[in-house]
């Protein structure tokens, strides 16, 4: 086998391996094993596995559910489904102040575990930013962008 033939054989094999691997991943081969967070509905479906295990829950902070106890540094809020509000929202309790962008109606991912009483005890609250980048609306005080949870 000449060097050129060997090289081109390597090329074909490398492309087949690369294409095959990509195909398997794209067709969902590892999709089910790669779960970053559960939605509230998925959390309810897997409620038996959720208690005690470290899991992530993702969804939207429901309007009118945010409660911040300054003295205890305890944050309570409810996470609902991103699109439809059919699934029962999950009550989340977290210690410490959340990131500055935290507010009602924003996407969040919380890391922690499900307690037996159905409350999600979060060690970490992360705020999701959408892919939208907008100029501020006219007349909005720019400083209000930096409102912290104490002012909610």
């Amino acid at each position: 086998m000449t060097q050129a033939v060997q090289r081109r054989l390597f090329l074909v094999v490398a492309l087949l391996v690369a294409g095959g691997a990509l195909g398997v991943i794209a067709m969902g081969g590892i999709g089910e094993n790669l779960v970053y967070f559960w939605t509230p509905a998925q959390l309810h479906q897997n409620s038996d596995k959720a208690v005690g295990a470290t899991i992530r829950l993702g969804g939207v902070v429901q309007a009118g559910t945010v409660d911040w106890q300054q003295g205890d540094q305890l944050l309570t809020f409810t996470v609902g489904e991103q699109t439809v509000d059919t699934a029962t929202p999950v009550v989340v309790k977290a210690k410490g102040a959340p990131p500055q962008m935290f507010r009602e109606g924003i996407g969040v991912v919380v890391e922690g575990t499900m307690r037996k009483d159905g409350v999600f005890a979060a060690d970490k609250v992360m705020v999701k930013h959408s892919n939208e980048y907008r100029a501020p609306t006219e007349g909005v005080d720019p400083e209000s962008l930096y409102a912290t949870v104490e002012e909610l």
């Binding site: 794209a26 999709g31 790669l34 779960v35 970053y36 967070f37 939605t39 993702g58 991912v109 992360m126 999701k128 930013h129 959408s130 892919n131 939208e132 980048y133 907008r134 100029a135």
Partner: peptide, 20 residues
Amino acid sequence: KWWNSLHQPVSSRQTIDSPM
């Protein structure tokens, strides 16, 4: 697109205001 993520999805002209 394929998985739930914290990172935002791909942006486009529709999601970014023109001065930006």
